[in-house]
Design a protein around this nucleic acid. Structure first.
Lengths: 149, 149
DNA sequence: GCGCAATATTTGCTATGTTAAATATATTCT
DNA sequence: AGAATATATTTAACATAGCAAATATTGCGC
């Protein structure tokens, strides 16, 4: 028996089959065209995520937004600040609980999403064409399992 | 027909089934215990990747190292600089082509890997226990397909 | 109703990610 | 050989990631 990668062995699995590295590599490939798409709008990937979540779910407090956009709260705070300066979102304290900040997308923000809609869909379609719808579904399901960790 | 997520429709797929977001979320879950493992060594996740690659493949030039550790060259440069200061790697210009920088791990660097070996393997084992070996293999295979993008 | 623990968000600091420009060395072409 | 070009790496500049500490409110218990 060849024993190249026994988890009880002395060595760690090869970095070629490392889950963390594989996740980064795949993500890098997926994001490259998305960043290109956003470049001429002066919008970053994370700013785009926040706009998308706000459009999809409507106005919401900072914590919920950070969770949905998959950002840490400190990052979210700063990104929302730059989006405020760009006039793409609004932010105001909750009436009932003033600790909470409610963030909402503006028409200008919606306009950016609208503007990139076709490009974004083309990118998604290309991914599906290359990977295949079935594998993408499998992938999403497996990735969801990681939340159990 | 319900038409919740038609790629020819008006809207983008829900952020809940977004590949980029799913990849980040999964990665975050995987990395949390690894960061904890490394915290007391004062080593970051990326520094750990560089050490691991150097140990696995031996001394190599900067570009190869960056590619294998899945880092952009500018990041790699800075990280190697801090690893140099910590005495965990060495760096010297290639004799034949002085543009190239050859990076190698030191004994002190190897000692850190050695030190974390059991922890790292325990983390890997836990992931395999939760996700299952078969799904992990599927995952790695699907993620590899993304390189075709 | 005041003091105090709990909650929600922001700030500060260091390390990376990302892109573009700068450096340094090699190679090619004439 | 010398200029132009190509390659390898580093720097610079700005945005985000991640962690710890600071702020601001709220809710609770006495």
């Amino acid at each position: 028996m060849t024993e190249t990668n026994d988890s009880a062995g002395r060595a760690l699995p090869s970095t070629r089959r490392s889950i963390p590295i594989a996740l980064i590599r795949a993500r890098e490939k997926v994001m490259t065209p998305i960043r290109e798409m956003l470049a001429d709008s002066g919008i970053t990937e994370q700013q785009w995520r926040i706009l998308r979540v706000l459009e999809e779910y409507g106005a919401q407090d900072a914590s919920t937004l950070a969770d949905r956009a998959c950002l840490l709260l400190p990052s979210q705070t700063r990104i929302v600040q730059t989006l405020l300066e760009k006039g793409l979102v609004t932010r105001q304290a909750d009436e009932k609980d003033r600790r909470k900040q409610t963030v909402a997308i503006t028409d200008a923000g919606r306009a950016i999403i609208e503007d990139k809609l076709d490009d974004a869909k083309a990118i998604a379609a290309r991914i599906e064409a290359v990977i295949g719808r079935e594998k993408l579904t499998q992938l999403l399901d497996i990735l969801e399992d990681f939340q159990k960790l």
